[in-house]
Amino acid sequence: MKMNKDPIRGREGFSLIEAVLSAALILLGATAFLTMAAANGKLLLQSGRIAKDSYGWEAAAADGEGEKTGETMEVIFQKDGEEAVEVFDQYRMPQDEQSAGEGVPFFRYREP
């Protein structure tokens, strides 16, 4: 950017308009960065909460908690004409006390 020469003093420098525009651009960049950082912080908190809940549900499922839904899943393995079947019952872990009908589904192994 070419600097303007001050006609009275004969020195080069920035005009007031150039200084205001550059400050506005810096402010715009800083605002965009802070907005992005705030959004990422919110997502980080949300993912941490989901991970914490996930570990709690996993521990509760391992302790035998959860409501059986009545649905099953069969996994069939085949190799060289032989077949093996594993059966899993579906359970549902309520997310909280208010949503007892809905929750996180998981499967527990059952002897076929």
Rank of each mutant, 00 (worst) to 15 (best):
K2C: 01
M3D: 02
K5A: 01
D6F: 04
D6P: 00
D6E: 08
I8F: 13
I8H: 11
I8A: 10
R9H: 08
R11F: 13
R11V: 11
E12P: 00
G13D: 13
F14S: 09
F14V: 06
S15W: 00
L16W: 02
I17Y: 07
E18N: 07
V20Y: 03
V20W: 03
S22D: 11
A23F: 06
A24Y: 06
A24T: 13
L25N: 15
L27E: 14
G29K: 14
G29Q: 10
A30P: 00
T31L: 14
T31S: 15
F33M: 14
F33Y: 12
F33L: 15
L34E: 09
T35S: 13
A37H: 09
A37Y: 06
A37G: 00
A39K: 07
A39N: 13
A39W: 08
N40Y: 09
G41K: 11
G41A: 08
G41I: 02
K42D: 11
L43A: 13
L43M: 08
L45D: 09
L45Y: 07
L45H: 06
Q46P: 01
Q46C: 00
Q46H: 08
S47Q: 15
G48W: 04
G48D: 10
R49D: 09
R49W: 10
I50Q: 12
I50S: 02
K52S: 11
D53T: 07
D53A: 14
S54H: 06
Y55S: 03
G56L: 12
G56H: 05
W57T: 04
A59V: 13
A59R: 14
A60G: 02
A60M: 08
A61N: 07
A61S: 12
D63Y: 02
E65S: 08
G66H: 02
G66L: 01
E67F: 11
E67D: 11
E67G: 02
K68Y: 04
T69W: 02
G70I: 03
E71W: 10
E71N: 13
T72D: 04
E74C: 00
V75Y: 03
F77L: 15
F77C: 01
F77R: 10
Q78R: 14
G81R: 08
E82I: 14
A84Y: 10
A84C: 04
A84T: 14
V87G: 01
V87E: 04
F88K: 02
F88T: 01
F88I: 01
D89S: 12
D89M: 03
Q90W: 06
Q90L: 02
Y91P: 00
Y91M: 03
Q95N: 04
D96H: 04
E97N: 07
E97I: 12
E97Q: 12
Q98F: 10
A100Q: 08
G101Y: 05
G101C: 01
G103Y: 03
V104S: 06
V104Y: 10
P105C: 07
P105T: 07
F106I: 03
F106T: 02
F106G: 00
F107V: 05
F107N: 03
R108H: 05
Y109C: 01
Y109L: 12
R110D: 11
E111S: 13
E111K: 11
E111D: 12
P112Q: 06
P112W: 05
